[in-house]
Design a protein around this nucleic acid. Structure first.
Lengths: 235, 235
DNA sequence: CGCACCCTTGAAATTACTCAAGTTCAGTGG
DNA sequence: CCACTGAACTTGAGTAATTTCAAGGGTGCG
């Protein structure tokens, strides 16, 4: 594990640029005084793992930037991606319910994430009701994302699923740009083989639904109109 | 809506047979005095809906018996089942995060469920920390079930998915009996068509992995050994 | 330059979908 | 009591989509 670690003082949480979307959104300045254990800002390189399924969860992570995949490994060694996390999402929420990690978290891009000890969460929640609302919201977000995943990425044919994934990945960018993970990961998200994922991406490029921004075929501009039509089944 | 309604006094919650698995598991007798709004025990017939996606969630339900499906309707009118709830599970947890219902809940069998007003949850949680742990546990259960759904029922071919579903449906019965929903619902759970679901069930019956207990093909005894082998890919 | 890794493509085999027709069964009404 | 009906399940045949296995390209890195 070569990830860069930067220790954060409670003070710097207060002025964190993404605090509004983080777990600490509702905290008041007094509350930060209750943080009695260090919170670290960790940097992960692509492919590095934040935590592994089954490990006792002593920490929870707030993703500051980048994309994290949550995966389950199957008995044949292949992986199924069960959810994607982006900026503002929490990885390892199950920690706050006292459980072991339910899945393995792996960075898809460079990822910056705050690692918060479980004890800090427990203490803040007991001492201040303000963390509570935000924790509930994060649970809700996670559950909603998970059922969206089923409804959108595990339903319909490969072209439809890919269209929905692309729309999701491009949704935050004002210019409809997005970065596409490896074809293997795309397959693991859609529940299809790597080859099928590759063929579908290649077809979209030929049809002009995707326009390459680089030579490696990782960054694209998407045609939102047409993809939306495809995603909803009106071919 | 012809569902039978029975009003429950806080007193009867105390002695409820399934309280140990319910939201109120950790409450002490004092806590029940805080329940200032009626909790109803509702009976739903198969096909009746508990609540609809998008409705403002003023209630949350604890399933006492029976099976409830959570469904999302797609733009073409077909439905995708995103999760199943059984005894002890909570439907409409999103209520406790102040959100609208994320999916529609429909009874698959006769269902008995306690309808708890949101205000009761809020009050209990504010006044007593004991509800809290249990609420967290229920969020965790829901999220785990949702990712299990992806990993198990949306991965592999139709035979494998059906095998995993059957094992799940039979897991609580000491004699490996289970009741199978309509083929349409099976399809909506596995992400395949009704015909494919029907063919897979029929094949399992011919192969002896399923033995009918009735003429209508709803109740079966499952061959756990063989299904487990199939589910894990060791044919 | 060559190796490794990923992506792409091809062709055959398998699996799933579509459309259409039978079958069974429970409930209804003559 | 029995024929009729509707709904759900089953099955068949043809088509489409996906997987599988195998080989060929491109890119980046040592």
């Amino acid at each position: 594990m070569k990830s860069k670690i930067v220790q954060i003082s409670a003070h710097s949480c207060v002025s964190c640029g993404m605090r509004g979307r983080s777990l600490f959104a509702d905290l008041q300045s007094d509350d930060f005084a209750l943080i009695d254990q260090p919170i670290h800002d960790l940097q992960f390189e692509p492919q590095e793992t934040l935590f592994e399924e089954g490990a006792p969860g002593a920490f929870l992570f707030t993703v500051r930037s980048g994309i994290v995949k949550l995966v389950r490994f199957q008995s044949d060694g292949t992986q199924r991606i069960v959810r994607l996390l982006t900026s503002g999402d929490v990885a390892g929420l199950e920690t706050s319910a006292g459980a072991h990690f339910d899945s393995t978290a792996i960075a898809l891009t460079r990822v910056s994430a705050c690692r918060i000890p479980r004890a800090v969460i427990d203490r803040l929640e007991a001492a201040s009701p303000r963390l509570h609302t935000q924790l509930l919201r994060k649970w809700h977000d996670a559950l909603k994302q998970s059922s969206d995943f089923i409804a959108e990425l595990a339903t319909g044919n490969a072209r439809q699923r890919l269209a929905r994934l692309l729309l999701q990945l491009a949704q935050d960018d004002p210019a409809q740009r997005m970065m596409l993970p490896s074809r293997e990961d795309v397959g693991a998200m859609l529940g299809v083989t790597t080859e099928t994922a590759s063929r579908a991406v290649a077809a979209f490029r030929r049809e002009g639904l995707l326009k390459s921004l680089d030579r490696q075929g990782k960054h694209f501009v998407v045609d939102v109109q047409s993809l939306r039509a495809l995603a909803e089944g009106r071919k």
